[in-house]
């Protein structure tokens, strides 16, 4: 962080903490099914009550994503999504909204754009944080060209396979919040939640004051509520993306998304 203005992510979590509520974080792929509809989708997420919007910047080879998010990135790229157009989308959304935006993507599109330049331009467009799935802090420290993060908060992943001795380093290098991946695997819905979520979140909390959000595999209001009991944030992605896939061509895409997301938000806020 080079700026003294408080980041929207930090202020959002501070507000929710004072209300004793968990954050609901909604993921969609930017540009899915195309750019004009993508802005409708994002606005619908906000209307449904999402506290933070996580926006996938489409990449051709998303190795940590399951089939639903892979197809979303594919649709977006087929429809002409580019990194520059994603920044335009954020700028457009930012005209009317202060809801924080976290970018969720892979290193290569950002590296090709120019790591430092991307961070500067994305922050200027109105993005607040970034989660680069394939940039562990270990590498960020070893590649001089990957250290200038400007005003974008770098959110780090912690996985169930992360050894206890690695937690302090990850907690220290994370900004905004920590994204706890609730199970070993790729993104995508599952029928039951992993055990030990509460326990693992507590282990992370021992090393940091940052909020912990939990994602991967959460798809129902009940699961949303269950996770909200254990963590400060609930991330739902593939389940929403599936709705975009199903209703992408329909005139009331925004309404459909809002109607689907609202109960998930209510679930997270019910505890």
């Amino acid at each position: 962080m080079s700026s003294s203005t408080p980041n929207r992510i930090d202020t959002t979590f501070a507000r929710l903490k004072s209300e004793s509520k968990a954050a609901f974080i909604a993921y969609v792929s930017a540009g899915d099914p195309d750019m004009p509809k993508s802005i409708e989708v994002i606005r619908a997420l906000e209307r449904a009550g999402a506290d933070i919007i996580e926006l996938g910047v489409p990449f051709s080879d998303p190795m940590a994503d399951g089939i639903v998010n892979q197809m979303a990135a594919h649709r977006a790229l087929e429809a002409g999504a580019t990194t520059i157009k994603v920044l335009e989308l954020i700028r457009e959304f930012r005209k009317e909204s202060e809801t924080p935006i976290v970018l969720f993507t892979y290193l290569n599109p950002i590296y090709t754009y120019g790591f430092k330049k991307f961070h500067k331009d994305a922050a200027a467009a109105g993005a607040d944080g970034i989660l680069l799935l394939d940039l562990p802090p270990d590498e960020a420290g070893k590649n001089a060209e990957m250290t200038e993060t400007g005003d974008l908060l770098h959110i780090r992943l912690i996985a169930p396979t992360t050894p206890a001795e690695r937690l302090p380093e990850l907690a220290k290098s994370s900004e905004g919040f920590i994204y706890y991946v609730s199970r070993a695997g790729v993104t995508g819905a599952q029928t039951s939640l992993s055990d030990n979520i509460a326990e693992n979140v507590a282990a992370i909390k021992a090393h940091t004051d940052l909020p912990v959000a939990v994602g991967f595999g959460i798809s129902t209001p009940e699961q949303s509520a269950e996770v909200a009991k254990a963590a400060e944030g609930v991330v739902v992605g593939s389940a929403i993306v599936k709705q975009v896939e199903a209703y992408g061509a329909s005139d009331d895409l925004g309404d459909k998304i809002e109607a689907f997301v609202k109960p998930l938000v209510d679930g997270a806020k019910s505890v």
Binding site: A64, L133, L135, E139, V181
Partner: peptide, 12 residues
């Protein structure tokens, strides 16, 4: 070179 992978694989 390096090790540009999601956190889930780092320990392995």
């Amino acid at each position: 070179g390096g090790r540009f992978v999601p956190e889930t694989l780092m320990a392995a």
